[in-house]
Design a protein around this nucleic acid. Structure first.
Length: 152
DNA sequence: GCCAACGTTGGC
DNA sequence: GCCAACGTTGGC
């Protein structure tokens, strides 16, 4: 059982959109490290912090869980998709994704607030220059975030 | 829109 | 295998 933080642009898919989609395929990841986390690290039942990025108020907006292991992301084969990858083939898919189920919308735990929490100082997503859309979260960090989400 | 901090590409 | 040039992410 592991924990993750997954970024989504709310303009594309918000926590509300995710709640309306029982099994949300996490398509469009085009970064090897993020792909490897999904392919090699994620298991069904893993906890996910649903993070809104590239928006007026970036931060954790909900909680989700992983509901499938990794399988090929079909958008890589579609020339019309903005996620099309001409170097990917059906025989040799390059990009993988998992399905995610949103469990609940939470209060917005903003990036600003996250940065004030000592217990979260080492969170990968808070590291300077971190642009990874999928990052691991430790059990201790998860616990801390759950407590913070219940506050207020 | 700016730009720091990456990641990727491709010539050599 | 190096590394300059280029592309992307994402907070501000």
């Amino acid at each position: 059982m592991s924990y993750w933080l997954m970024k989504s642009e709310p303009d594309e898919i918000s926590i509300d959109d995710a709640l309306a989609t029982p099994n949300l395929p996490w398509f469009g990841v085009r970064n090897y490290q993020a792909r490897n986390f999904m392919r090699d690290g994620m298991q069904v039942g893993d906890g996910v912090l649903f993070y809104h990025s590239s928006c007026p108020e970036p931060g954790i907006a909900g909680v989700a869980e992983v509901v499938s292991t990794a399988y090929p992301d079909d958008t890589q084969f579609d020339p019309k998709s903005k996620y099309y990858d001409p170097k990917a083939t059906q025989e040799n898919p390059r990009w993988m994704m998992v399905d995610v189920r949103a469990l609940r919308k939470t209060r917005l735990l903003s990036l600003q607030e996250l940065r004030t929490v000592d217990a979260l100082a080492d969170m990968v997503v808070l590291k300077k220059g971190s642009r990874l859309s999928i990052t691991p979260v430790t059990a201790a960090e998860w616990k801390t975030v759950m407590k913070l989400l219940d506050k207020k």
